[in-house]
């Protein structure tokens, strides 16, 4: 496997203009830092894809996990986005920066996933699904995606310590109930209770978020 030494454009703050100066041409800097990726895609898409993957996989997983709170789900979701990116040859058609495209896709997917998992109680959901597919994200979406992961973050922070620990072991680390029970020296039954409590709390907190999101989306598309 070939290894590449590349400057990571995202972690050299001195290369990055301060916001006030960046205001002139914010897009150019993104293009500049991704120029080598674009070149690689032009020469050999597979090579470009490898570079893109190695460059952005980790931060995108980190971002996705803020929504779904599961390592496994986050990785699957980000992998799927990368896979579709290559399969549909999106790299030929992307007009924004690659990272902008990937973030949009990952945040969309994370949103979709969360809404499926925790949003089923909403009766309007079934109808909004149709409105959502096939549309570009509306201007408000970035704010709402942010609100969503902040809400998830808050919800989990508010959990009692032991409940939160059990929930994270189960969901984030993907551990089995029995393993958690052994690790924390509690009964499997208690683990179950903690987890259902956590999920209930998460569902309740997110309900408000869904209400806002769904209203806005309906306003936008109707």
């Amino acid at each position: 496997m070939a290894t590449f030494t590349l400057l990571n454009p995202s972690i050299s703050p001195e290369n990055r203009p301060t916001p006030s100066i960046a205001g002139e041409k914010p897009v150019t800097t993104v293009y500049d830092s991704e120029l080598f990726l674009r070149k690689a895609f032009e020469q050999e898409p597979r090579k470009g894809f490898e570079l893109l993957f190695r460059h952005y996989y980790t931060p995108l997983c980190s971002h996705a996990v803020r929504f779904v709170y599961s390592r496994q789900l986050a990785e699957d979701l980000v992998s799927e986005v990368f896979y579709q990116f290559y399969r549909t040859e999106a790299y030929r058609k992307v007009h924004s920066s690659f990272i902008s495209y990937l973030f949009t896709a990952v945040r969309n997917e994370a949103y979709t996933h969360l809404r499926r998992e925790f949003g089923k109680t909403d009766s309007i959901d079934a109808t909004t699904e149709n409105h959502l597919t096939g549309h570009q994200p509306q201007p408000d979406s970035e704010v709402h995606f942010n609100n969503l992961f902040l809400a998830v973050n808050d919800a989990i922070s508010q959990l009692p310590a032991q409940c939160r620990r059990v929930f994270l072991l189960s969901r984030f680390e993907n551990k089995k109930y029995e393993e958690i029970a052994t690790e924390l020296q509690i009964s499997p039954r208690t683990v179950e209770v903690h987890i259902s409590k956590a999920l209930k709390h998460l569902r309740q907190t997110l309900r408000e978020e869904w209400a806002v999101l769904v209203c806005l989306i309906n306003l936008f598309f109707c």
Binding site: V94, H95, E109, T112, R116, L132, T133, G134, Q136, P137
Partner: peptide, 9 residues
């Protein structure tokens, strides 16, 4: 479609 759209996972 080149733009990411909301699709099932």
């Amino acid at each position: 479609e080149p733009m990411p759209v909301r699709k099932p996972l």
